[in-house]
Design a protein around this nucleic acid. Structure first.
Lengths: 195, 195
DNA sequence: ATGTAATGTAAGTGCTTACTTACTATGTCA
DNA sequence: TGACATAGTAAGTAAGCACTTACATTACAT
């Protein structure tokens, strides 16, 4: 196993355990075990538990999915496009569940670093969605409203669903409910913003 | 200071420190100091730190505000009523910021207890708002949609705003923005659901 | 005034845990 | 083969922290 692989193993284990037990609740011993390395190896790769935590926060932007989705919705009508965006956003959130859980749980620990990680994830999305809505407005498809506020409303509905299902109540729900809810959200938003 | 007062002091201090530093980050020593009592007094009132935590979670339902608001919006038109509901909900969330922060941070600790506290806060609200929307539907004021989904959409937008501003980025925003956003959310929702 | 319930002071116990040190083992490349 | 980088084993250190114990103090009710 190369140095980089070992490092990644440790980061993966840290992500998992920090998310399951919180920063203080996860011991360096457990993280090392989970990663399949000796505890001392962890400390050879990362100066301290704090430093390991900071490294764990890096590199979770939504950019890959974002670009993919923006391409995909070209040529779709408004409702269809927003549906795709909603579902992709929801899936992207799920994929990053562990890191989001950590962000929400440990805000008080390193406010700046956490804020950074948060903005890194979200800002681009809001901007992109606002831009998309603004474009549709210019085409006369949407009524007059602030696209930034619209984007916040749209993402807020979906984020709350994610937060309730995946962060607070892991598992106590059915997939069908989830899709029904998202469809309903999109429907309300469409009707609320169409020209 | 009576026994009950001392107990309340400790609970208040615990709420504050658990929310600021997390369950494990807050020491019983600090909580006692914050409450202005000796550490041993804390343990005379609460068997253990765990037990203190559980007690801290109790009694934060939204019922008082809920009843107040339901009375207040009688006779208002749809948009006006929803505006009042949105603002009240947002204020109610802010008022419970500490406990909500704890709930979000410590879900993994006592899933059942946390879920209980969560449902105690939210379920009544969803039910009440659904009921309100259903009533308006029956009067023919709103189009046909599932009021439960509508309630989730509405509360989701506002909760996300709260979550972003008060939990993640405490303070880095202006009150005007907040009101503008809420008004925009309500507006989109109104137009998306009206007959 | 005195007994009782609540609190404080002070010291300590035992466990956990981040992090270290010293030495050994293994694999890779010259 | 041997030098070097990387990882493992094992033992330990020092600090923090929940919780306890023993005893002194205060306040209030009868």
């Amino acid at each position: 196993m190369s140095v980089q692989e070992t490092r990644q193993q440790i980061l993966r284990a840290a992500l998992k355990l920090f998310s399951e037990r919180g920063f203080m609740g996860a011991t360096t011993r457990e993280i090392a075990d989970e990663a399949g390395v000796a505890e001392v190896t962890l400390f050879r790769h990362f100066l301290s538990k704090d430093y390991l935590f900071e490294e764990t926060l890096k590199g979770y932007s939504f950019l890959p999915e974002l670009q993919e989705v923006l391409a995909k919705i070209q040529g779709m009508d408004y409702e269809e496009g927003m549906n795709v965006i909603a579902l992709s956003f929801f899936e992207a959130l799920k994929k990053r569940r562990d890191i989001i859980r950590i962000i929400q749980s440990e805000v008080y620990r390193y406010p700046e670093k956490i804020h950074l990680a948060y903005h890194e994830m979200i800002d681009g999305l809001i901007k992109a969605l606002s831009g998309h809505l603004r474009g549709l407005q210019k085409k006369g498809l949407l009524r007059d409203f602030d696209p930034y506020n619209g984007a916040r409303a749209f993402m807020g509905m979906i984020f709350s669903l994610f937060n309730m299902q995946e962060i607070l109540l892991r598992s106590k729900y059915r997939k069908e409910d989830e899709n029904t809810l998202i469809a309903a959200f999109v429907n309300i938003f469409i009707r609320g913003t169409i020209a």
